Simulated assay, not measured.
Amino acid sequence: MRNTLLCCDWGTSSLRLSWVNTQELQIIDEVSGQEGIASTYNAWKESTDKNISQKEFFLQKLQQQINVLATKLGVDLNNIPVVLSGMASSSIGLEELAYAEVPFALDGSKATVRSFEKQPEFSHETVLISGVRNQRDVMRGEETQLIGLVHLMNLPDSKQKEIVFVFPGTHSKHIQVQNNAIINFQTYMTGEFFNLIAQHSILKNSIKNPKQEKLTEADWEGFSRGVQESAKATILHTLFSVRTNQLFNHLTKAQNFFYLSGLLIGTELRSLQQKTVPQIVLSSGSNLYPFYQRAIEELQLTDQTLVVSPEIIDKAAMVGQVRIFEQQLTPI
């Protein structure tokens, strides 16, 4: 099992565990599920065993996932090092770690990590990676993805000009890079705000999720209208147009669902129009990729935007974890 590593991207609502060939930077196999940090923390709080510590409980859950992967592969994964990133280093995770600060070098050398020795119940050396902060913002996980992305791609030279990497998600991140380091970043609660509006506001009665894999031209028309509407007023005003669209029969409820998405994504990305940004790199997974790409086209940001394929983004966190592991410890 030499030259392999167990890489775990443990987010708020999901977990992804990969067995990785570190020389070829290839995933041998993986398991994933909805056993995220939040649900695991809640399970620990509700546990009847009051003698088990938070760290011990999280290691037990991680060991269960390693066992699932080992059974799937038919191999013994004991003694293979584990590297963790994402929300595992938060106050509701395995152990809380202080954030690294900007400027943050993209070779992984400035990452804040904590190493744990093997234990009788957990036979893996473990490296826990923390996140990054600036004066008013924090992130956990995206910095590791970015380290991997920069390693994987022949990206524009950041020594001469600033590059903004856009990572869509529940809490989207716009990360400014210059001189091969993160110099600043901003968080946009686009995904979470969409879910709140769509599920818990008066506007939920004006939209309907069509739950179809492929959008129709009418769906895309609704999305584009939302992007364009985002320029007309502040979001607190334009949001009410979701209701009037339905009341005045301007859009169907299904179109309105995508209109709301366009309204919020358009609001997020318009911040890039307000800055002098020579280069934008859209770094999106497959679920949100077509929406952000369409919004960039609608906002006429295409000429200055490099779009990274979802396949590369899917691999970026793992590569970033390997890079940080190699920087912090002896080479694998």
Rank of each mutant, 00 (worst) to 15 (best):
E117P: 05
E117H: 13
E117N: 11
K118F: 05
Q119K: 15
P120I: 06
P120N: 08
P120C: 05
E121G: 01
E121V: 06
E121N: 13
F122Y: 14
F122W: 10
S123G: 12
S123C: 13
H124E: 03
T126L: 15
T126V: 11
T126W: 01
V127D: 01
V127F: 12
I129M: 03
S130K: 05
S130A: 15
S130F: 04
S130L: 04
V132M: 09
R133L: 04
R133A: 14
R133G: 08
N134S: 06
N134G: 03
Q135F: 13
R136H: 12
R136M: 07
D137N: 14
D137C: 09
V138I: 13
V138W: 07
R140P: 11
G141S: 04
G141P: 05
G141L: 06
G141C: 06
E143C: 00
E143M: 00
T144W: 15
Q145Y: 03
I147R: 08
I147D: 08
I147S: 08
I147L: 13
G148S: 02
G148P: 03
V150G: 02
H151G: 01
M153T: 09
N154D: 15
N154S: 14
N154E: 15
L155P: 05
L155Y: 06
D157N: 15
S158Q: 10
S158W: 09
S158A: 13
S158M: 12
K159D: 15
K159N: 15
K159Q: 15
K159E: 15
Q160M: 09
K161H: 12
E162P: 03
E162Y: 04
I163H: 02
V164S: 02
F165G: 11
F165N: 11
V166L: 10
F167D: 05
F167W: 06
P168Y: 08
P168H: 12
G169I: 01
T170N: 14
H171N: 04
H171A: 02
S172K: 11
S172G: 10
K173C: 01
H174T: 00
H174K: 06
I175G: 07
Q176Y: 15
Q178F: 02
N179W: 03
N179A: 10
N179K: 10
N180T: 00
N180R: 05
A181F: 09
I182C: 03
I183V: 13
I183K: 11
I183N: 07
Q186P: 01
Q186E: 11
Y188S: 12
M189I: 13
M189F: 12
G191P: 01
G191H: 01
F193S: 13
F193Y: 13
F193E: 07
F194S: 07
F194Y: 12
N195M: 08
L196A: 08
L196R: 06
L196K: 04
I197C: 00
I197Y: 00
A198N: 14
A198C: 09
S201E: 00
L203K: 00
L203E: 01
L203H: 02
L203I: 10
K204L: 02
K204Y: 00
K204R: 12
N205R: 12
N205F: 14
S206C: 15
I207S: 03
K208T: 11
K208Y: 07
N209T: 03
N209R: 04
Q212Y: 10
Q212R: 15
